[in-house]
Write a protein that binds this DNA or RNA. Structure first.
Lengths: 361, 361
DNA sequence: GAGTGAATTTACAGCGCTGGAAGTGCGCAG
DNA sequence: CTGCGCACTTCCAGCGCTGTAAATTCACTC
């Protein structure tokens, strides 16, 4: 099986290497008889084209790197799944090389300057810390598309969700439910990511639109992006007397932590405190109560990102394009739809303006 | 930046390609003066060695494929993270190519017979359906280590947790807590995976050791491996009158679904029903109540698997080796340690026989 | 001042594959 | 029966790099 080369097949079939290559690639200009003869030789020898040789000759590997902070974060693992499927269906069928940056600037630099070139055809990167200028400078000639919000270098493609608008929509939904003290949970205590920054901006905008208090006490930061840290932080806030009746969470992890802190203190959800998370991870549907969540359209995000990347790989060299994909506000028990019953339903409730749809599930 | 070749550097520095190559690889036998001169040329030209050219010459890519059912399953994403870190620290520093099989036989076949050879140096595969014979037949000459329990082909390396023993330990812990009707939740309704099969065997063994009833009603299967399906299945079982006071779950997803179904019906955990999950995923610590869980030692698993794979890649060609890594029984609120208070603690409670440790967290 | 061995550097031949140019054989018109 | 065009196949060069072997240089010794 091992080490069967194109040459071996050619000899076995008594033809030239190029003819075998043509058969492998279903090129035209190969007679049916010849095709069959070669195919038999291929089968008999168990020939597998060698990807590396091909790459060297063609300049393509069919690999793209997907780089983000940490696969363990459900948003990212779900994203990896979606992108991996979309990539397999793109052009020649790309496969994913996974790279984790740990959410640190060093990790991001390491990913960008991976000293070996040529291994991947392109890269999808969700930066958390690197400045747009640095990204623009460092990516060199590697085709690249940035994922997620944040400072957008003019020279690089980017696809994102409008975090500010989504945070505003989430906050406004709580206001519409009659909540008067809405807190924000889950941004990093030190070194806030641009993601957190934008969501907080949108949260503040939402509060202001409804004349609700914008209070520093209502910003509950966490040590790390984990549900455990969020549970601790929310618990501590409650214990030191911070009061709120609505919670916009940086992500579902924070929301799940908040759920736990509230449960521990017998605070009823959503009666006493309504909670909205972010990312609509799979667990959001089975927490108790189930979690309302901002749901970025990751399918669209994957599609758009891969299309742009494919264009770059194909040689497009224009200025950076910035695309925005839409999001839904999926409403479940923790912050139900406006005029809904308490019973879990499953149908579309309403559609917000712009790119926000509210769905009650 | 782009397309600077070894040759270009050589010309720029006025030396031969090989000398530049030697400098890049920090080979001995390069004089300091020469090294500096070449390095300057490298820097000036911004040369990046091309990974593909190197691969073709050396036969190594530094890539290993990690194949499992679905990254979205927290166990797998956490595993990917651990393996990715361990791989980066192994030998020359491997990187991970992610492959998803969807848990189907077709997906597994596709991964094994990826028509292109040579892209990865080796593969770690966690099969869910494929028979050991088929794996042994198909993997050809690709260095491979299997992850997880199941039928183990004699010719292939495998590293696993003793699922039977772990399931027995979990079941016995519930028995020790005085539970008398212990159910099992989360195996596939049709086409049971070998994982589920083994865990059920261990569950049954645990029941028998304590003279507890082994009742078909107590096997609560689900449609898919999701917490949502588990919530539905457990809810349905409760609603049709199945009674139990302990729950061994196929995985934490099933456990989380069970938690929700119990909550919905105001059944107290752990007072009315104690629950033990499996995998000890990150969320287990922040569910309400927090989840006791079987925790495979994934660090050890990654370490052992990569070491064996590295040996295979290096040419080892002996018979398949089967390694077992240990596991902990992490005890939290949903099925607390035996003589513990109700308050969450954080210290080691006890150590089981063999490779099972109970930890209360 | 030529000879010797060690230390460096260069030359060369591919790794497996593909693209384009050149070559082969065939059928058919003249 | 010869020549021509077409359809198909083979030949050749090279993608970027490395391993081996040969060549060069150098520091000394006799």
């Amino acid at each position: 099986m091992a080490g069967v080369r194109l040459q071996d097949v050619a000899e076995h079939a008594g033809v030239s290497m190029k003819t075998v290559s043509n058969v492998v690639h279903s090129h035209p200009n190969v007679s049916a008889a010849m095709r069959e003869r070669v195919q038999r030789a291929i089968d008999e020898l168990g020939y597998r084209p060698n990807a590396i040789g091909r790459r060297l000759a063609t300049g393509r590997t069919g690999l793209i790197a997907l780089a983000f902070a940490d696969v363990r974060l459900p948003y990212f693992s779900e994203l990896a799944n979606v992108i991996s499927k979309a990539a397999a269906a793109t052009g020649p069928g790309y496969r994913l090389l996974l790279e984790e940056t740990e959410g640190t600037i060093e990790g991001e630099r390491a990913v960008l300057s991976a000293s070996e070139a040529g291994l991947v055809d392109g890269m999808l990167l969700q930066p958390s810390r690197m400045s747009s200028r640095e990204i623009a400078e460092r990516h060199g000639d590697l085709p690249m598309v940035l994922l997620g919000e944040g400072p957008a270098p003019l020279s690089v493609d980017r696809v994102m969700v409008d975090n500010v608008a989504a945070a505003t929509a989430a906050t406004e939904h709580l206001a519409a439910l009659g909540r008067e003290r809405v807190a924000f949970v889950g941004h990093e205590r030190s070194g806030m990511s641009s993601t957190s920054r934008q969501r907080i901006m949108g949260y503040q905008e939402g509060l202001e639109r409804h004349g609700l208090p914008v209070d520093h006490d209502l910003l509950i930061s966490t040590g790390a992006i984990t549900s455990q840290d969020a549970a601790i932080a929310v618990g501590a806030a409650l214990d030191r007397g911070v009061r709120f009746d609505g919670l916009v969470c940086r992500d579902d992890l924070a929301a799940i932590g908040a759920l736990r802190a509230l449960h521990e203190r017998d605070i009823s959800i959503p009666d006493d405190v309504a909670v909205i998370g972010w990312d609509n991870i799979a667990f959001a549907a089975t927490t108790f109560p189930s979690l309302s969540s901002v749901a970025p359209n990751t399918q669209a995000l994957a599609r758009v990102a891969l299309d742009m990347l494919a264009e770059r790989i194909a040689g497009f060299d224009g200025i950076g394009r910035h695309r925005v994909v839409d999001f839904d506000l999926v409403l479940r028990e923790s912050a139900p739809a406006l005029a809904s019953t308490d019973a879990p339903g499953g149908e579309l409730a309403s559609v917000h303006a712009g790119s926000a749809h509210a769905i009650s599930a």
